[in-house]
């Protein structure tokens, strides 16, 4: 069950203060990196929502993010909707697609669930890659950013855009936390631990899973919309299964089922990539070894490890439950 321990609140506060201070003073490239972290954080947050709290380890969240990006670009460019309406439409559409996938895959578990979501992910990728309607592998350019001049903001300014993404991240976090505290969120956690019992209690399992997956998909769609706005160009590469795999790695590195951990994971992952790739072309191997080390250490990611150490010492918060060891 998700609760805001004191440690989690402190971490959130530190992350928020750090992001705002860094965002206010860094140069151009620092802002790009910060935006990258914010968008990745939204994506992994959405994945942790279903993987960490619902046992639904998905390999289609990259494709869902891509769906959001493509839907936004096409609604805004081809249908000529205003960017704000296109954003809402794209997030809603991605949520609907995700709910459908969640409903279809609801009966599968474990590796079968992973593979079923992968199948949908690959279908989406092939469709976008090979169809000229979506621009094929050339992608789509001229993706607009919303016009917020009414409230005095210019999103074409890099700093303003970074804060726009950070605000979206904060919103996504609040939505995710609220979902987990709701009855629906509790049902989802219950389903992960004992599906038979909850069914016996009269719960419609597939409906809970579909709704949860839909909400998670909508958040992933938001990440996609922002990714499209950031580069103002999108390509099928966004939807490749490796993007989903990478998101899963970030969730694991951060700490599955902690909601705060994946945010830390996104921060570490992006920094690691920029730092490691600066001095070796073999940064994949470094990330791979870190992943192996983290999992071998039996800790629940970097953040899970910190939580565990502190709760053992009894310094802060309550000991965390051994969540999702056998998801």
């Amino acid at each position: 069950m998700f609760r805001h321990t004191r440690l989690r609140l402190i971490t959130l506060a530190l992350l928020a203060i750090g992001a705002v201070l860094y965002g206010a003073f860094t140069g151009y490239f620092g802002l790009e990196v910060l935006t990258e972290i914010a968008i990745l954080a939204i994506l992994v947050l959405s994945l942790d929502l279903v993987a960490g709290f619902g046992g639904m380890v998905s390999l289609c969240h990259g494709a869902l993010m891509g769906t959001g990006a493509y839907a936004f670009a096409m609604l805004a460019s081809d249908l000529g909707l205003s960017p704000a309406a296109a954003m809402a439409g794209a997030i809603g559409l991605t949520g609907a697609v995700a709910a459908l996938i969640g409903a279809i895959c609801a009966r599968s578990h474990g590796i079968y669930f992973i593979m079923a979501t992968l199948a949908f992910s690959q279908m989406g990728y092939s469709l976008v890659f090979e169809s000229p309607w979506f621009g094929g592998d050339d992608g789509l350019s001229d993706v607009p950013r919303p016009d917020l001049s009414a409230i005095g903001l210019d999103l074409n300014d890099p700093r303003t855009f970074t804060f726009w993404c950070l605000a979206a991240l904060a919103l996504a976090y609040l939505v995710a936390a609220q979902v987990l505290r709701s009855g629906m969120g509790r049902s989802m956690v219950g389903l992960m631990h004992n599906e038979k019992r909850l069914r016996a209690l009269g719960l419609t399992a597939w409906r809970v899973k579909a709704v949860a997956f839909g909400i998670s998909g909508a958040i992933a769609g938001l990440a996609g919309v922002l990714a499209a706005q950031q580069t103002q160009y999108i390509s099928p590469g966004l939807m490749a299964w490796t993007v989903s795999g990478e998101a899963l790695v970030v969730v694991i590195l951060g700490g599955l089922g902690t909601l705060v951990g994946p945010l830390v994971g996104a921060l570490l992952f992006v920094m690691l990539r920029h730092e490691v790739s600066a001095f070796t072309p073999y940064w994949h191997a470094v990330v791979g070894m870190i992943l192996v080390a983290v999992v071998m250490s039996r800790a629940n990611g970097v953040y899970g490890w910190i939580e565990h150490r502190l709760s053992v010492r009894g310094a802060h918060g309550k000991p965390i439950e051994p969540e999702v060891e056998n998801a």
């Binding site: 795999g245 791979g288 070894m289 992943l291």
Partner: peptide
């Protein structure tokens, strides 16, 4: 799950 992830890391290595 942990075993799957260890082998996933091994792919990159």
């Amino acid at each position: 799950m942990a075993q799957v992830l260890v082998t996933f890391g091994l792919i990159f290595v």
